[in-house]
Amino acid sequence: MKELVRRVSVIFSFLLFSGGTSLFAESGDVDISGTLFHHILNGRSVDLFPGVPAVTLPLGISVHQAMLFVSVVLILLLFLRAARNKSMKPKGVRSIAEIMILFVRDDIVYPVMGKERGEKWLSFFISLFVFLLTVNLIGLIPAFKTATGNINVTTAMAVIVFFLTFAVGFKELGVPGFFKNMYPEGVAFPIGIFVVLLEFIGLFTKSIVLSLRLFANMFAGHLAILSFLVLIFVISPFFSLVSVPFAVFTYVLEVLVALLQAFVFTLLSCIFISMASTPEGE
């Protein structure tokens, strides 16, 4: 076990190191911000390994798009294998799937929505959580990119939640009931209207912040790793002795952040949806 950890860490530091050298493989010159962003932003080509020329994706799909597909395929494979295992004692892939399902069920959906409503929504939130988690984590593999580090992806996810909030609210409370729900009880007329306005704006800002949070977290984390590595080229090659350990540390932190952000996104969307559809005071 110890041996394995050591070997993995050696490989990772090598990859990080070589990833750092590949930063300047194509430009060779000083455009730091350009090279930094090249490794985070969407594009049409993938740098698989330093020294190897970048691979241009077929059919004009962009890298983030490809990452989305890869993660969907990965999740489906995982759950297919998990669903095929019918034994009572979870083993291997099955236990991974069950850990995620139980986490979403017991820590997110049931505490927020209660058991009866939660059961209906469980599939949606499990898919949401697993999807975001996989997309977040897949970006940490060298040569892969984080699709959630693209604001279009996170906004698309937030928009789904946003429309679900409205749809569920309208369905459960009716259109007038939904807006009446925002009006606080026992407040004088003009102030109440102001509160309703604030709540209404809040509906939008909540979703915008939801998307921005995920985007910024994933984006900033990768930027931090890359910044440490870029410092090697800015300062001196010997700075790698400091930089690489810090980059590895940030990398490990990113694993935690990937999990945390997927959790937070799922928890917040669960709260928004359940708040919009339960009458005030319940």
Binding site: V209, L212, R213, A216, I271
Partner: peptide, 14 residues
């Protein structure tokens, strides 16, 4: 706690 921290973190990220 995580929820609140995430909300504030969003503002910082803004």
């Amino acid at each position: 706690m995580i929820l609140m921290a995430a909300l504030i973190e969003g503002l910082a990220f803004f």
